[in-house]
């Protein structure tokens, strides 16, 4: 990449800056220099895989906190936090009827910071349902679902359903009385569907009542299938924000 910055000045700071950000190794990782000029700031966003979902420039009203209250971003943040804490929980958890409850009990008593990780996972899961709902309300009351953003609203509703399913499947995993009976109530609701209710319930539970089959089914859905689906729909969701011209503005 062509060097377009000015030659360095005489001071020690300039010397240090040059040594830190103009060396071969730094440039192999970050193509641009330190983001202290508009050009480098735009490059920092555009050339980073983590930041490139952002545009390089954004309308100034959209940066105001009261415009979005960061709700969509917070939902994504919850998803990331849940992934990290969830992976940690998976180290200690075996999804079998014999071990599940003891594993959670042991995680709380035997594992350093185990209780903290479990608490974080649980509270962030509840928070994600709330932020997703609030995000939907924000988008609605701002009329941000209007053309050309119709399809992104649909993707958003799908993500809401996926969030609820993720939370629901995770609810069973501690295998305590709360989990068992909440899932029993929930699956009875699904089982009341006209005509195909009984079949739906058997497919969902892997049996006629909540048991070992249900636990492994919900575990697999919770740790692999639903997060993957959610990640795919989230990618589409974020991509479409950019493609549809960023956040909605008055015409």
């Amino acid at each position: 990449m062509a060097r377009t910055e000015q030659p360095r000045g005489p001071g020690f700071g300039d010397f240090l800056y040059d040594k830190l950000f103009h060396n071969y190794i730094w440039r192999s990782i970050f193509r641009s220099g330190y983001p202290n000029t508009p050009r480098n700031q735009m490059l920092a966003v555009a050339t980073s895989v983590f930041l490139h979902l952002h545009p390089t420039r954004i309308h100034k009203t959209h940066v105001k906190i009261t415009h979005t209250y960061c709700l969509g971003g917070l939902s994504f943040f919850m998803f990331l936090g849940l992934t990290v804490t969830g992976v940690m929980l998976m180290f200690y958890y075996v999804p079998s009827v014999d071990r599940a409850y003891t594993d959670i009990a042991a995680l709380e008593t035997n594992v350093r910071f185990g209780m903290l990780i479990r608490n974080l996972h649980r509270w962030m899961a509840h928070a994600m349902v709330i932020t997703v709902l609030l995000h939907m309300m924000r988008v609605f009351y701002m009329g941000a679902y209007k053309p050309p953003r119709e399809f992104n609203w649909v993707v958003g509703v799908i993500l809401l359903v996926l969030t609820l399913l993720l939370s629901f499947t995770g609810y069973l995993l501690p295998w305590d009385q709360l989990a068992l009976w909440a899932i029993t109530v929930g699956s009875n609701i699904a089982g009341a569907a006209p005509t195909l209710g009984a079949q739906t319930r058997i497919v969902m539970l892997g049996g006629i009542e909540v048991g070992p089959g249900t636990l492994i089914r919900f575990y697999t859905l919770h740790v692999i299938a639903l997060p993957l689906l959610a990640a795919i729909f989230m990618s589409v969701h974020f991509w479409r924000i950019r493609r549809d011209g960023g956040l909605a503005r008055p015409l």
Partner: peptide, 25 residues
Amino acid sequence: LVDAPLLNKANPNITPNPSKAPWYL
């Protein structure tokens, strides 16, 4: 500050009254 709840091990023979779904359901 707040611990996640963990009740007794799941027991299909003891039905709590009331049995409640997760809050969002």
